[in-house]
Amino acid sequence: MGKVKIKKKETRIDMTAMSDVTVLLLTFFMLTSTFLQKEPVTVITPPSVSEEKVPDSNLLSILVSPEGKVFLEVLGSKDSTMKSETVRADLLKNMVAEYKKTHPSANLAFTNKEMETFSKLNAFGVPITKMKEWLNLEPDLRDKFLESEQNPGIPINMNEDPNNPNEFQMWVRAAYNSMNPELQESMVKGRGIAIKADQTTPYSVVNVVMDNLQTMKMNKFTLMTALKTSED
């Protein structure tokens, strides 16, 4: 009988191919990813059949929490000519000027450092009188305060007098007048203003924001929705 040769089997598996695949996947994710921006309130937007995408540049989005608190997010242009940071710093400057029109005695002076902190923030929403204090907080305390219940958000009320704007209207005006002409243009067209609200938010809350925009003659804007596949 022939000799039975028992082959010694190698127990190690060659991981090279596996490594290749993972590196490829990793590269893909690194290149395509845009990081999830932290938002002060999590909202689930209502579904809609609209297929238009949210622009990722030159956008002023208004985040409305179910309780009616308002937060703002500002994005600059895509290329480096008008970065979000530049636009935001300019926005704060405009806001101070805008606020002083109706409150001439207000003591609002931001240092360069505070400006820089503000320009790096994705979302904001505190009364302007508290802004200085808020900007000087530690980053995690800042986020906490923004989410906390004692933060009233950006002050807003039913106001139909364009000559006596509330703080929300001042911010929108400040964004409109910022040195970024592209943002202004997209705001006029209605692509540049987006309202983001949770689907359970009562209409009365969203209506306040819409009314405020309407008072400012910015009657074109978009509502952020999630995609719903249509049955067709």
Binding site: F29, S33, F35, L36, S50, M210, N219
Partner: peptide, 23 residues
């Protein structure tokens, strides 16, 4: 990979454009 997968937003929100009457 897991980290990147969890941190990315692949699906962008959609928008619905509306225009309100001026006043």
């Amino acid at each position: 990979i897991t980290f990147f997968m969890l941190c990315t937003t692949m699906i962008k929100s959609q928008t619905l454009q509306i225009a309100l009457p001026t006043n």
